[in-house]
């Protein structure tokens, strides 16, 4: 029943990508004679993203946000559920069948050091997608396109002969973005693309992503643990906790008035760079519970200061509280604040 609600939930016109009741479970432990446990990294997740829309996905480590992003791009095979890309079910497609779809959906990695092959030049790295997907292009045409996409990300063809280690972290991230853009994708998953960078460089890359979405109209799933960055870049935000989306809403609505206690606590925990503000912070007790043995009912109830006995009985369904604003909390009476 939660599923039907969730599918109905965020319905932009003509979704580019639609995710229905997606589950990604991983077996752990286990051996020859012993049945292992199952980590429910992503559990019953449904949402959709419209053409040109940017959805932020926020959560802490262990929330399953990265696993979700990778599953949607079919870097793994989901346990159950459905992923529709441009109306087509891609959930069970094999490697070969996915190949013609790859140019339409690309990935931006977190670590600008690990995501570029140290033995390849920038020209080879950025040109590889063309080499594979557009083998008909000759060297000159390829170079022209490489130069074009490098300019888009603020680099020039002048750098094309160099190796990744000759660049700073921010520049490397630009190279990674260029590789993702060269085939003109309709959809990007960006997995914490700025969190490995220095503060002053973070801002450069956030600005670049803002420009890219404005100019190229590419839709994005932007995964981050940083609410402030998400706020600057995204149209809507989904908050994940222990494998499930607990709240999803238009950015402004979520920032003005969060409707899930976990979102409230997240806002409260972000340190604000202004020493004159002294606020009462909500300090959550304990850690995220183990995904091996999640609590019954609402997974957040153990750390929630508004928890009721009923919270333990069943996983709360996603319910709509406002236009496009959904929360997985059974309490309707809460007046959650966001201390700033």
């Amino acid at each position: 029943m939660t599923a039907t609600a969730a599918i109905a939930a965020p319905v932009p016109e003509s979704p580019l990508i639609e995710v229905r009741e997606l589950r990604q479970w991983f077996p752990v432990g286990g051996g020859l004679l012993r049945r292992g446990d199952v980590v429910r990294a992503v559990d019953d997740v449904s949402f959709s993203i419209a053409k040109g829309e940017v959805l932020g996905l926020v959560g802490e480590s262990g929330s399953g946000k990265s696993t979700l992003g990778r599953a949607i791009l079919r870097m793994s095979t989901p346990t159950s559920g459905q992923i529709l890309f441009e109306g087509r079910d891609v959930t069970k497609l094999g490697r070969r069948a996915l190949r013609p779809l790859r140019p339409r959906m690309q990935f931006i990695f977190q670590d600008p050091f690990a995501s570029l092959n140290p033995r390849m030049t920038v020209r080879q790295i950025v040109g590889a997608p063309l080499l594979i997907q557009r083998p008909e292009l000759d060297g000159a045409a390829r170079d022209a396109r490489i130069g074009e996409v490098l300019r888009t990300v603020g680099l020039s063809l002048h750098y094309a002969g160099r190796y990744p280690h000759e660049f700073s972290g921010g520049q490397r991230q630009r190279i990674g973005i260029a590789r993702a853009l060269i085939l003109e994708p309709a959809f990007l998953v960006a997995d914490e693309p700025v969190s490995a960078l220095d503060v002053s460089i973070q801002a450069q890359i956030v600005n670049l992503l803002i420009d890219i979405r404005k100019e190229l109209g590419v839709a994005m799933l932007f995964i981050s643990h940083d609410l402030a960055v998400v706020g600057h870049l995204c149209d809507r935000v989904a908050v994940m906790y222990l494998g499930r989306i607990v709240e999803i809403a238009p950015t402004r609505a979520l920032f003005r008035r969060p409707r899930h206690p976990y979102t409230e606590a997240l806002f409260s925990a972000v340190p604000v760079p202004d020493p004159t503000i002294r606020r009462e912070r909500i300090i959550l007790k304990g850690d995220i519970p183990s995904p091996l043995a999640p609590p019954s009912g609402c997974a957040f109830r153990g750390r929630c200061r508004y928890a009721l006995p009923e919270c333990a009985s069943a996983v709360p369904p996603l319910r709509q509280v406002d236009g496009g604003h959904w929360t997985r909390c059974i309490r309707d009476d809460l007046k959650l604040g966001r201390s700033l």
Binding site: L73, R99, Q110, A114, S115, L116, N117, A128, I132, Q133
Partner: peptide, 26 residues
């Protein structure tokens, strides 16, 4: 499991490309 190999998979690179162009030099 490195990201740059995942990146090659993401552009739909066939196995022999990944093996001989991406992995072997490393």
């Amino acid at each position: 499991e490195r990201d740059f190999i995942l990146a090659a998979e993401m552009i739909g690179a066939p196995g022999r490309y990944v093996m001989f162009r991406e992995l072997l030099p490393n």
